[in-house]
């Protein structure tokens, strides 16, 4: 199979998922609203004391991002599993692990990228300084793809289960911990005016690691779930 047809299969699949998401755009908005709502609940619960909000802000926004990502994951393979498209995907004449990357990319564009875009607004709500907001956006930009990649493995393992949602959170959230730690630490550190190159490099390295391993694990998991 030539590169050209693989590239076109990748593009067709990516486009397919984007078109499907567009035709169901009301559903995409849900995780985003959830993200905003959760973040807005914290000042209501903790009080509007500015230094305190600044201190908890990075962690709160990142935890909300994890939960929003988790909420959106189920959509990645569920409908394809139910209507049989996933079987067809596994029977493609292209490597499944590469096609899976197309699906994960589409998922990130539809659910991860919007989080990055609204993050500055949430930073303002939690009175983060300007530098910290810039770093927040940067960490989300590097970190949310990791969430989609790791999440894909979890969804692939649980897609055949009727009540996969709760198990999914048990599988995926512990694996999200390193991203959470380094990303929220980067934002807090930036707020204190200390350089954060180390954290960014580490998150970048995790992204590379996830990008190279997660598709393989996802493809293997889908094979198991469909058998």
């Amino acid at each position: 199979m030539s590169d050209l047809s693989l590239r076109s299969a990748f593009a067709v699949l990516l486009k397919r998922d984007l078109v499907l998401a567009y035709r169901r755009r009301a559903e995409i908005a849900n995780p985003l609203l959830f993200f905003i709502l959760i973040t807005a609940l914290f000042p209501l619960g903790l009080g509007s004391n500015k230094p305190m909000l600044q201190a908890v802000g990075p962690g709160v926004i990142w935890v909300a991002a994890l939960l929003a990502a988790l909420l959106s994951l189920d959509g990645m393979f569920r409908s394809d599993f139910e209507d049989g498209s996933l079987e067809q995907l596994m029977l493609s004449s292209h490597p499944v692990s590469l096609l899976v990357v197309a699906k994960i990319s589409a998922h990130w564009l539809v659910t991860g990228l919007p989080l990055v875009v609204v993050a500055p607004l949430l930073g303002v709500l939690l009175s983060l300084p300007g530098d910290a907001i810039a770093v927040l956006v940067l960490t989300l930009l590097l970190g949310t793809p990791i969430l989609s990649l790791i999440g894909a493995v979890g969804v692939a393992l649980t897609v055949g289960l009727r009540r996969g949602g709760i198990i999914l959170s048990l599988l995926v959230l512990p694996l999200y911990v390193p991203v959470l730690i380094f990303a929220s630490d980067a934002v807090s550190t930036a707020a204190a005016g200390i350089p954060i190159t180390a954290q960014l490099y580490i998150i970048g390295a995790m992204l590379v690691l996830a990008l190279s391993l997660a598709p393989l694990a996802t493809a293997a998991s889908l094979r198991v779930s469909l058998s």
Partner: peptide, 21 residues
């Protein structure tokens, strides 16, 4: 793997078509 699947076409119980397309 894929070298076999290029020769195969499968129509199963589930139609494998996307309802929104």
């Amino acid at each position: 793997g894929p070298d076999y699947h290029e020769h195969v076409s499968y129509v199963g119980h589930r139609d494998g078509v996307k309802q929104d397309l």
